[in-house]
């Protein structure tokens, strides 16, 4: 028999079609970074993301960009922090409450929180690497007893590049974790640490033999941090990084995000360090 129609026509949503979401709130984090709180417009919504996953955010008439999930709730709310670095993120950065954006996803494999149960946890964020780690931190707070020592190191280029500033300060008040905030360069009005995140690692307190590390930030920062962690005795298969590559489709069709054998969109973005370490050493992979 000849097929006049096909199974794909049976009403399943197209994997590349965005779902409308309404902008509920907008907050300026830094001069070039904005946090958006989104809510579903109608009954349609994407599945609930797990920490470390990302979505494709769509600005009507402009295009799509892959953006990590920084938060959300069971009502379908999504929180994203966007840095204005291109055409699409520029449009996303200029949204105001009530505007509509498109969302599809969630995509990829996130942080393997379950594997960290019972272990010490080192979380290292560089710059805009903090938003994709934020859901991990709150999951950690919710199940604090399930983990050993927790060490959070957050670095940015300058004090004014730190995102979620007040929120991060509130974490300081907790006595069940250690937080170090550092910047690469600062003026006299900065009383905190100065230096890249790896300079804070020697002060970090964790039992290397039972530590899982989640690292997110620029590629070079992740590579050097992973090397430093391994240098302190953390097993390479206990270190996880979140890779970033150009993504157009997010479902493994478009080919753009390949990193060696991995499709960052599908196999990542969170990848185990020991599996990618040989490629991280090379340029232009």
């Amino acid at each position: 028999m000849l097929a006049e129609t096909d199974p794909g026509a049976s009403g399943a949503p197209h994997p590349l079609a965005p779902v409308p979401y309404s902008v509920r709130a907008v907050a300026t984090e830094t001069p070039d970074t904005t946090t958006l709180v989104l809510e579903p417009v109608g009954s349609r919504r994407i599945g609930r993301p797990t920490p470390g996953q990302f979505v494709m955010l769509y600005a009507f008439g402009v295009g799509e960009s892959p953006i990590g999930v920084a938060g959300g709730n069971s009502d379908g709310q999504l929180v994203h922090t966007v840095r204005n670095v291109g055409k699409v993120t520029n449009a996303l950065s200029h949204l105001t409450p009530g505007d509509t954006v498109g969302v599809r996803g969630p995509y990829g494999h996130g942080w393997p929180i379950a594997e960290a149960t019972g272990r010490d946890l080192v979380i290292v964020a560089g710059g805009l690497g903090l938003p994709p780690l934020r859901p991990v931190i709150y999951q950690l707070f919710a199940h604090r007893e399930s983990y050993g020592r927790v060490e959070i190191i957050y670095g940015a280029r300058t004090p004014k590049d730190l995102v979620y500033y007040d929120e991060v300060q509130s974490w300081r008040r907790r006595n069940d974790l250690r937080l170090q905030v550092t910047v690469d360069a600062a003026g006299r009005d900065w009383y905190g640490d100065v230096g890249v995140v790896t300079t804070r690692l020697p002060d970090a307190r964790f039992d290397a033999g039972r530590t899982t590390a989640f690292v997110c930030g620029p590629e070079i920062m992740m590579r050097l941090t992973a090397q430093a962690l391994v240098g302190r005795g953390v097993a390479p298969d206990g270190v996880w990084i979140s890779m970033e590559r150009n993504m157009k489709c997010a479902v493994g069709f478009c080919g753009h995000c390949q990193f060696g054998p991995s499709f960052v969109c599908r196999d990542g973005p969170v990848l185990r360090y020991d599996r990618v370490a040989p490629l991280l050493r090379l340029r232009e992979v």
Binding site: L2, A3, T5, D6, P7, G8, A9, A12, H14, P15, V251, G252, F253, R266
Partner: peptide, 15 residues
Amino acid sequence: GGPVADPGYSGRRSR
């Protein structure tokens, strides 16, 4: 062949 199938390709291919 993956977790997500492209509807256009799959439809044309089936015919």
